[in-house]
Amino acid sequence: MRSAWVVMKRELGSFFVSPLAYVVLTSWLIFTGITFWILSEFYARNAVASGSDTPLSGFFGGSALFFIPLLVFVPVLTMRLIAAERQSGTLEVLMTAPVSETSIIWGKYGAALVMWATLWIPTIIYAWITSQHGSVDWGAVGSSYFGVFCLGIYFMAVGLLMSTIAPTQIIAAVLSFVALGALFAVGVGEFVLDGTLREVCAYLSMWGHMHSFSKGVVDSRYLVFDFSVALLAVGLSIAVLKARRHG
């Protein structure tokens, strides 16, 4: 585990000295700022008498504005993890040190989760702004962030797997975009299909996931899904890295 910590520290260090980190974080904040402004405007103009929708529940997954940027930002954040090491040749130095593939992957994954957190921590200010002009259900805000964290657990794991499979960073980003886009599309099936398929799509839906968490409902079925996908993707990443030695 100590090796995983060393790998994670290096990954974060190199991420936060790269221009990429600041381009991503700045554009993310511009994007979420605009989203929050649009939603606040919308709810201010259309005083919704019924329902539990608020600018904050809208912000946390109530609209496609939440997911579409994530489908781009997640691949950009995760594409470097293993693919950059493979491209620059440093993977050879890393894998000939006395460090197991398991430690490497967990270290990289830990770094990815910290990157995910840095995307979201500044958004707390939107809850604070709302609280200055109206009432905020802090329980729902808490469960929204918990939902965001759980979503990150599986988004980042999928991105990590794609970065482990792909020969280059660009291919890793494209693969992650396709994988997450497909998972997003499956969720849309909830509104199109009938019967059992509809149930399955609802269960897999990231939209449904965030919709429930943003209302303060922590649905354990979504948690089971998030953690299973994350564990599967991390496990597969370890297996892919191990298999590389036999390439």
């Binding site: 290096r10 190199s14 620059s88 040749g89 440093t90 130095v93 000939t96």
Partner: peptide
Amino acid sequence: RLGYMPEGVPLYREM
């Protein structure tokens, strides 16, 4: 037990 220097010496250039 070994120290290895691969061909082309790949290093983390930002460090």
